[in-house]
């Protein structure tokens, strides 16, 4: 008689496989439907305005003019301020927690930082109105929004950076220390090069969050129209904020314009993510020694 090599029944395996494929396909389907519907609804305004949708500063539903440049600018400017504030703070905290802090301080600090990440954004927004705008007199401005967004993305950048930094093998740190390096020199020689890719990824994730944040920005940015200026104390508006503020009383063309804003934001965040992935992969290839 021949050997029986048919093995155990593979029903469970087959079921798992189809569930996994189904879940994966569902995600793609949802993404595809979102993109399809949004682009379709954005088409009227883009057909009307053409490329001037991105270059015009004039946004007036009464005249049927929809130029998104001020909102595009507001989004990028506030996100840039947020990242400029959040990156040094996050990196500093992550390095402190992983390299400097004594063990008894490390756990509570990590806990508090992670707690900061779950504070609802409307709470940060209201705090910004009360404290930054009114108490410190910053008003509702690009700067106020940038600071609030910076505070909001600090926990996530810190958390991710900390995790990346902690993957530095002790042997790489000891290599630097054994050459007479100080702690900071060791961090520069071993920890940062090792973590570079992951740190860029963390910052990009924070940047994406800052650009997409709606309610906090809407509360403190000032909702001023037509502002394209590098003056951080000026009031302005951002893409998500203007959508939240105007959707309720918008007519058809106006809605189309707001949807076009959403599509633009969507495309920008995808682009940021793609760039981040490319940077991370390139730096990883580099440190593995395959290119020069």
């Amino acid at each position: 008689m021949l050997l029986d090599l048919r093995g155990r029944s593979a029903h469970g395996d087959r079921a798992f496989r189809w569930i996994a494929i189904g879940a994966g396909a569902l995600v793609l389907l949802i993404l595809g439907m979102v993109a399809l519907v949004m682009v379709d609804r954005a088409r009227p305004v883009l057909g009307e305005m053409g490329l001037s949708f991105f270059s015009s500063k004039r946004w007036s539903s009464a005249d049927g003019m929809y130029g998104a440049l001020p909102f595009l600018w507001g989004t990028l400017f506030t996100a840039a301020i947020a990242v400029a504030i959040a990156v040094p703070v996050s990196l500093g905290v992550a390095l402190f927690v992983t390299q400097v802090a004594p063990r008894w301080l490390k756990k509570p600090m990590v806990y508090v930082i992670d707690l900061l990440a779950v504070v609802p954004s409307v709470v940060f927004g209201l705090w910004g109105v009360l404290v930054l705008s009114q108490h410190f007199g910053l008003g509702r401005s690009f700067l106020t929004a940038g600071i609030i967004l910076g505070i909001m993305i600090t926990p996530i950048i810190t958390s991710l950076s900390r995790e990346v930094i902690e993957t530095t093998p002790p042997s790489e740190k000891e290599a630097a220390l054994a050459l007479g390096a100080t702690r900071w020199e060791m961090i520069r020689a071993s920890v940062l090069p090792h973590s570079k890719g992951g740190l860029v990824g963390a910052v990009m994730l924070g940047l994406g969050r800052a650009m997409g944040e709606t309610i906090a920005a809407a509360l403190v940015i000032g909702s001023a129209l037509g502002q394209v200026t590098v003056n951080p104390f000026a009031s302005g508006n951002s893409m998500p904020a203007v959508i939240a503020n105007e959707w309720g009383e918008a007519d058809d063309m106006h809605k189309s314009a707001l949807i076009a804003l959403a599509v633009t934001l969507f495309v920008i965040t995808i682009a940021v993510n793609l760039i981040a992935t490319a940077i991370v992969q390139r730096s990883m290839r580099h440190s593995r020694g395959k290119s020069t």
């Binding site: 042997s171 000891e174 054994a178 050459l179 090069p193 593995r288």
Partner: peptide
Amino acid sequence: TEVRRRIGMVFQKPNPFP
């Protein structure tokens, strides 16, 4: 730091910097 400058160390697993 000064001690380790004068007394170097080579480790079990080669650990060049990236």
